[in-house]
Nucleic acid binder design. Sequence first.
DNA 1: ATGCAAAATGCAAGCGCTTACATAATTGCT
DNA 2: AGCAATTATGTAAGCGCTTGCATTTTGCAT
Lengths: 341, 341
Amino acid sequence: MAKPRSAPTLDDVAKMAGVSTATVSRCLNNPDRVVDATRKRVLSAVDTLGYTPNFAARVMAAKRSFTIGAIIPTMENAIFARGLQAFQEELHQRGYTLLVSSSAYKPEIEEEQIRTLIARGADGLLLIGHDRDPKIYDFLAQREIPALVAWSYLSDSHLPSIGFDNRAAMFDLADHVIGLGHSKLGVISGHVDGNDRARLRVQGIRDAISGRGLEASNLSLIETPYEIENGAKAFRKLMSADTPPTAILCGNDVLAAGALRQAQEMGLDVPGDVSITGFDDIELARIVSPALTTVHVPHREMGRKAALQLVEMVENQTAGAGEQLATRIVNRPSLGRPASG
Amino acid sequence: MAKPRSAPTLDDVAKMAGVSTATVSRCLNNPDRVVDATRKRVLSAVDTLGYTPNFAARVMAAKRSFTIGAIIPTMENAIFARGLQAFQEELHQRGYTLLVSSSAYKPEIEEEQIRTLIARGADGLLLIGHDRDPKIYDFLAQREIPALVAWSYLSDSHLPSIGFDNRAAMFDLADHVIGLGHSKLGVISGHVDGNDRARLRVQGIRDAISGRGLEASNLSLIETPYEIENGAKAFRKLMSADTPPTAILCGNDVLAAGALRQAQEMGLDVPGDVSITGFDDIELARIVSPALTTVHVPHREMGRKAALQLVEMVENQTAGAGEQLATRIVNRPSLGRPASG
DNA sequence: ATGCAAAATGCAAGCGCTTACATAATTGCT
DNA sequence: AGCAATTATGTAAGCGCTTGCATTTTGCAT
């Protein structure tokens, strides 16, 4: 009865069970390729030894890790939480483990993370959005790493994508807002550089404005990182204009929550004095009061479908078709008609 | 110019640079043990080949992964976000990578995650709270895996811990609430089974009640998972009693936010009709209105110190001293005196 | 019983890297 | 210029596992 100073290995198990390491390995990975009696013997050895396979060794020998990597721009707010959760659950079902890392919205960090995840043996990758250095796509292609883009659907792109049409979604919301009578619009967007979701959302607003025959000058835009504080700060700035906007469209719910808080601190009634809208429909949108009118994104469905598709790509070497999902406007009290006057 | 069907290896680099694999390896890990000229040659080969070291192979050969594992109960709300973020940042500074997984508050899942993380070669582990099967501690000790507990400080425990005194923190808050004149208290707690933080917080309230000479019957308690919805549900239930509590102490800010929303939906004024308090002081506590009186926990400091301590344990084989951090009550409008009458 | 196909198991070659240890190239002194 | 002491590099043995192929065992029909 030796007490192992370090982890027991396949060899230890094999010895204890009186079989070869090959048999133990098969026992663990293809149980039906081993006869009952030996399997029992092996498993009991595994048990008494407290054996756990060494992952690194396994990856090296099998050249498969059953690990999927995901790189999201941030974990700091809940934007990606629900979708990623669903993604993870579905992967788990299929026997895969998810490794998540965040890029802080920085392209160079994302690139580093991609390399890291691949070095760690990820069988496939989930990326957010399409905007990135083309050489990354070359790298992925050259290494033949299956990768999928989520949170933004484009039909023609380097990688297949599962997501929604950010431009159209925001277009619909903006059009709706203008339809209520708002003609002076403020926009608090995330930085659009390297962020196609943000860029397309702003584009949607622009398109809605010109579609309704309004001047582009009726739009004032601020770009800022996705943080509550920044939403507040941007709101203050937008409202300090000579003729402030009557509606503020925010690039996401987090910015909108910040704007809303700031409105309240400034003693403004929402939506009486100014309307505020968000995007994403995360939990926060319903917690604040008044609750936010926002664009509902089917995060769970997106996550689930992304997982399915990616596993399919990994296991069958297929290309992946991608899929566009529908969004819908959720009307809540933060949006109303402009004060008539 | 062969185009590699799979990743280039150390060998490829060595060949291209005309040196041995050992030299390449040293070049990457101990640059100063290699003379300038060769280093330059090697690095340029690395570059043109686009070489990235294979992590699994490296872990196997070096028996070090520079990876730290953390298992938190949940990622679904922000309870652990800030602390973990600081933990991660500090680890990164020290050259370590963080692997996070969540146990969904289930002991058996936590155990599985611990094994998984170790199998993946984690050099050390961060665990939340002290309540777990003793055999896990045996396992960790036998495998000699450095591990540290956070979010709860206990001076005598299997593992060193960095955190605060959950009982004392909640005791202070409850004592303060009672001092304001509240004598009928409602408590919405997380499940205390297997969760020492929750258990100790409740204990703190009990101690405050008896410390003030009140009957234990003045306390009504509901245990429920940490989700906004459940906070709302529990609040409804507590307030439906014949003589409902005048103050509701919640196990954390998330439950408190749920309770608050429910209060508003029931047309109750907070704190006029009923006071509500939280715990943690996450961002949410300041976003809701009225903002929540809560217990501020120095999450960032805790995360940072945990990282420092754990790295120290890993690198110097030391035992780890642990540290108790101070919390403080943050007074905000959700807490007031009970309606006199 | 006997022979043969099929099923079960064993053998051993890697997977890509690190690291003692051995060897070769430099350096500094005299 | 010559030798010892350094310093730089090469050699090769694993790390723990999977898997193709070889070998043994089993089950069955004859």
